[in-house]
């Protein structure tokens, strides 16, 4: 027996809001979450799981980001609006400063080598650059310059781990994985790197600058090098040339393994 009232009651069935599935999967830990934030290079998606930020990419199509993420990480990712404000603050800060700071970054899906490259890169302060070879040597693999480049090109969390601060030793910027290649110089300029100055040094094949008062040589963008007055600044084309001239390597930017 079906009468009018039963038909009307059946019509009271409605679809669940779209947020239910993502919220449930995120809360159970079965999916990672992502939010959209702003950056110098435009809106970005930032994804995170239980152990920290897993990925950052230019905000484009949500479905594309989600399917790429699942393919790469082996876990679904869902967009969420409400995340703890403290986390959002840390994310925004990490993006604007270009270093993880207090933000946990989860690199566990990467190889030990990739992790070492990225951790070392995260130490480069804003406004400074280092050559690929520097990263290779610092992690104890001086011959792996090319592999360092590959690892940085696959940086899952650009901006937060500042792979834009690693450049070619000939003064060219090298590749950049986040959006347009021009984003790399754009980010560096935004941080106050003197791009013209760097280019001028590179065309003269100068790799290091030193101070004739301290007899210390640095990477040109090292904060100590930048403090040197122009009349005291000397230029070197190699570590050897600097050592030969009686200069020692800066202990902060470590152009060579400092004693």
């Amino acid at each position: 027996m079906t009468d009018q009232i039963e038909t009307t009651l059946a019509g009271l069935r409605v679809p669940a809001p779209h947020g239910v599935l993502p919220n449930v999967l995120a809360a159970t830990g079965l999916a990672d979450r992502y939010v959209q934030r702003d950056s110098v290079v435009g809106p970005v998606y930032v994804a995170f799981g239980g152990d920290g930020v897993t990925r950052l990419d230019i905000a484009m199509s949500e479905s594309q980001f989600e399917s790429e993420y699942e393919e790469m990480m082996g876990r679904p990712v869902v967009k969420v609006d409400d995340v703890p404000p403290a986390l959002v603050t840390r994310v925004d800060r990490a993006i604007s400063e270009g270093r993880p700071g207090r933000l946990a970054v989860d690199l566990s899906s990467l190889t030990d080598f990739q992790q070492a490259v990225l951790r070392k890169t995260a130490e480069i302060p804003p406004g400074e650059v280092r050559p690929y070879g520097w990263v290779a040597r610092e992690i104890g693999k001086p011959g792996a310059v090319r592999a360092v480049g590959t690892a940085l090109a696959r940086n899952p969390v650009p901006l937060i781990i500042p792979c834009h601060r690693v450049v070619r030793s000939d003064g060219q910027f090298g590749q950049y994985s986040l959006g347009d290649a021009a984003n790399k110089p754009r980010l560096l300029r935004e941080e106050g790197v003197d791009l013209e100055g760097l280019e001028s040094l590179a065309t003269r094949r100068v790799r290091y600058t030193g101070s004739d008062t301290t007899k210390i040589y640095c990477h040109p963008t090292c904060r100590h090098a930048r403090r040197t007055m122009e009349i005291h600044q000397v230029e070197f084309k190699s570590e050897k040339a600097a050592e030969k001239a009686g200069y020692r390597a800066c202990k902060v930017c470590r152009p060579a393994v400092a004693a």
Binding site: L12, P15, A16, L21, V24, L25
Partner: peptide
């Protein structure tokens, strides 16, 4: 299998909860 469970039953639960609470936020 859990995501499939949510997909299969979310409309059920939401519809019932909505009619019993008359509040979309509470129902969600």
């Amino acid at each position: 299998a859990f995501p499939a469970l949510v997909r299969a039953l979310q409309d059920d639960i939401y519809s019932g909860a909505l009619r019993l609470t008359r509040d979309p936020h509470a129902a969600q």
